[in-house]
Write a protein that binds this DNA or RNA. Structure first.
Length: 518
DNA sequence: TTTAGGG
DNA sequence: CCCTAAA
């Protein structure tokens, strides 16, 4: 019996607020390697010198729902059963062996950190061979990649998913709290549903067939809502080039050229920087992120990023064995290189990537309401490894990731990232409202007792970020949007309890009665 | 083990 | 999320 009485609270959350379309990638494994090597466009590396781009401003917001990559053997990957520490095996991936893939297991932030300091080495000898022979081809691929990046459709992660999730999580905080199963990642294998939003953020259409390409200029747009911008320069990933002193300037040029084209061939993505900050949410409209037609756009920048093709499926699936389906991941597809096939064919940098998809399942006791994946129930260690064997390991590979110092002892795996669902946030808020901000153990017991993967430290951390989130502008928020109502409550509770704490410091033994009065 | 904060 | 000093 819990000693903490909690009010029952099953308030209906307002369906997604303004930012419903948000589908931030949260920066997971975004290979952003900003480096000192600024290639000014006038060097025409991209042939886009001073090109001006026109983008519809109030374009309907269409995002991509997670699509399931084709799976082998018709494995039933429809549902993702959540795990918890109890489910043996689940938390201990067995198939992580090679270093490349291991590296991808490192958490988002760390990966960013590492990569930020990491660079690509250009092996001179290799470059000598490749010379500029494939330049045309690579250019083509690069352009192709750009184009596809540009025109790729985005499908809204359908709201029914969220709705469904929330429904299942009818949160009654202390009555039951958050259960593991409740907050598990639900998957929907169904067709693509599109939701489009007008400039006000209102849902105005739900039809996949009529989806217009996000970035394409449409005849329906009125010119006054177009933002005109010019690209002065691109920032490219950091490169390290080794070349003997005795080399000629000409060979240096070729080396650099090769290095750059190699990256291009590997598929590039364009990053958008607004006021120095990276805009990750591809689904927001320019207007939403603050790019308006009237504004001076000098604070708008672009970066070139290596396409982290390898960081998509392997990252989510192998890092968390319980993501039985890649499609379960909130936003996997957004990072799949649109030109993956081309890159492989030409044996570009991507060829060095060792793709490994590990699918494991081992649910023993945990009663799972969503047993769509029951077919995998008994599978002790179901691993599936897709290995892209590099056609030519040593040849024609101009770029090779530089090895850096071991980041973390092999034993201690960082826990898989599990973003809080709205339902969990609701539960957390409610518990904190009741218990305060200094009793995380109790909060855990009260609202998350059955969510094994949420420790009180997690809850404390989440609260911290919630408070922060509530304080920043909606435009700066990332991830699944938290209803404003909840954020308001966060602020209120935070204010209230910090005040209580302050008072408590003044008058040592504040009776419980005092609290009730306040 | 929990809290509380910085990383 | 992780890491830890303190309690």
């Amino acid at each position: 019996m819990e000693s903490h009485e909690c009010k029952d609270g099953s308030k209906k959350l307002p369906q997604g607020q303004q930012q419903t379309a948000g589908n931030a990638t949260d920066g997971n494994a975004l290979y952003r390697l900003d480096g000192p090597v600024d290639l000014d466009a006038k060097h025409s590396v991209l042939g886009s010198s001073d090109s001006s781009v026109e983008v519809p401003l109030h374009r309907n917001n269409i995002s991509r729902k997670t699509l399931l990559p084709k799976q082998e053997d018709g494995m039933d990957l429809a549902a993702c059963n959540d795990d918890d520490e109890n489910s043996s095996g689940c938390t201990h991936p067995t198939v992580v062996t090679n270093k490349t893939s291991r590296m991808q297991h490192v958490g988002d932030r760390r990966i960013r950190k590492l990569l930020a300091s990491k660079f690509w080495r250009v092996a001179p000898t290799m470059l000598q061979d490749s010379e500029t022979s494939n330049y045309d081809v690579e250019q083509k691929h690069a352009l192709q990649g750009k184009r596809m990046c540009y025109t790729r459709q985005r499908t809204q992660r359908n709201s029914s998913k969220r709705r469904k999730l929330f429904d299942r999580c009818s949160v009654s905080v202390c009555g039951g709290g958050i259960y593991d199963e409740d907050v598990s990642n639900l998957c929907e294998n169904g067709g693509i549903e599109l939701e489009t939003y007008d400039s006000q953020g209102n849902l105005c259409e739900a039809n996949g067939a009529s989806s217009a390409t996000t970035g394409q200029k449409s005849r329906y747009e009125s010119p006054e809502y177009h933002v005109k911008l010019s690209i002065k320069s691109f920032k490219v990933p950091e490169l390290v080039i080794e070349i003997p002193e005795t080399a000629t300037v000409g060979s240096l040029k070729r080396t650099v050229l090769d290095a750059v084209t190699a990256i291009l061939g590997g598929g590039l993505c364009v990053g958008v920087l607004l006021q120095g900050k990276k805009v990750r949410d591809d689904n927001k409209t320019l207007h939403q992120v603050g790019i308006s037609h009237g504004d001076k756009l000098d604070n708008l920048g672009f970066t070139l990023e290596p396409n982290p093709r390898q960081s998509t499926a392997p990252l989510t699936s192998s890092e968390d064995p319980n993501f039985l389906s890649i499609g379960c991941a909130p936003e996997p597809l957004d990072r799949i290189s649109p030109i993956a096939p081309a890159a492989v064919d030409q044996g570009g940098p991507d060829a060095t990537q060792f793709l490994q998809i590990c699918l494991e399942s081992d649910h023993d006791s945990v009663p799972s309401p969503t047993d769509a994946a029951s077919s995998l129930e008994k599978t002790k260690a179901n691993s599936l490894a897709l290995v892209a064997v590099p056609p030519m390991d040593t040849e024609a590979l101009a770029m090779v990731p530089l090895r850096n110092k071991p980041k973390r002892s092999e034993a201690t795996q960082r826990r898989v990232r599990r973003p809080f669902s709205v339902a969990e946030v609701e539960a957390l808020v409610q518990a904190v409202e009741k218990l305060g901000t200094g009793r995380w153990r109790d909060v855990k017991l009260c609202a998350f007792e059955n969510a094994k993967h949420r420790t009180y430290v997690d809850l404390k951390d989440k609260w911290k970020t919630l408070v922060h989130t509530a304080r920043i502008s909606p435009q700066q928020r990332r991830g699944e949007p938290v209803p404003q109502e909840l954020l308001d409550r966060v602020l209120l509770a935070q204010a209230y309890w910090s005040q209580q704490q302050a008072k408590l410091l003044q008058k040592p033994p504040a009776s419980a009665e005092t609290r009730l009065l306040l």
